[in-house]
Nucleic acid binder design. Structure first.
Lengths: 158, 158
DNA sequence: CGCTACTAGATTGTGTACAATATAACAGAA
DNA sequence: TTCTGTTATATTGTACACAATCTAGTAGCG
């Protein structure tokens, strides 16, 4: 690299960028069998846990905006996994619920986490578990820090 | 989560997924000033370092496929940052080179890594530097492992 | 030379991402 | 009640991301 400064953050950010896509590639063949994409899968994970949710709750839980979530939900509805309806007491709000097919899909999804874990974990399980707990922690810290400095930037603009 | 198994890999993968987008959000305002997106930026990083490269080399260095790279390069060309030409000795190969404007852009990009680093690093610099070296290492290990198990899967299919 | 297999890129189609904008519904003040 | 500002979601436009397919060019072999 011509300029040394370009390396530090690049080394980190590019790795995260690459890892994210490699992870998606690991999920893809598994999720193909359920006719889901990864963003659709984590949307279903939320619904399997909470039974129902509004579009806003889903956006905030998955940190996606409505421009992503709206068409995604439309595809899940077209796939017969969920239903959407405006709430009578506030017609602005759209409530998403699982269909029977959507609920039943959870059974098929049960093998996915273990399958992904087997791509991530190697021989020494305990050691690896410890490493990933650590990774989880540092990812959280980094996320928090980025979100904090984003908030700061946004505040400065206003 | 109804089923405990869903948590382990989910906790890891979702964090990586979220972190990737948060990182892109940190780059965005900086890269907007250069009229680049993040994938375009790392393409330019490659070219700033190597002067030139074929489409295939860029795809492989950034682990992107031609379906992403081709239109991306077309936009960089439209922006006047690069030129593309077929090599005389092998007309299949397209060589990408920086224009003067593309070369000069590097100067403007110099402040970006430091700016991103300041979103990532907090008070105790040394401690944080140590943490990120560690993060870098574990990201690499995880990437390697995922790529290995992908290769394995692909081999099994054939 | 003519045939075949292969290679490098480009294209197409689907699905995110997200900024910017639009729309409809709600809530509170005059 | 009417006006105004706000909220929840949807839509539009641009740019990835990638599987699948296409195309032109190359290389090897009879």
């Amino acid at each position: 690299m011509a300029h040394e400064q370009l390396t530090l953050s690049f080394q980190l950010c590019f790795r995260v960028y690459a890892l994210e896509r490699e992870l998606m590639a690991a999920y893809r063949p598994l999720l193909d069998q359920l006719d889901l994409t990864y963003p659709q899968y984590i949307t279903m994970l939320y619904l399997w846990e909470h039974e129902k949710g509004t579009v806003g709750e889903l956006c905030s839980a998955l940190s996606l905006d409505t421009g992503t979530m709206s068409p995604l939900l439309k595809r899940l509805e077209a796939g017969g996994f969920i239903t959407r309806r405006r709430l009578p007491r506030d017609e602005r709000t759209v409530e998403v619920r699982l269909t029977r097919k959507g609920k039943e899909l959870e059974e098929q999804a049960l093998s996915i986490p273990g399958n992904i874990a087997s791509c991530l974990l190697t021989s020494d399980k305990d050691e690896q578990q410890r490493r990933y707990d650590e990774l989880k922690t540092i990812l959280d810290q980094t996320l928090d820090q980025l979100r904090a400095s984003r908030k700061e930037r946004e505040a400065r603009v206003n």
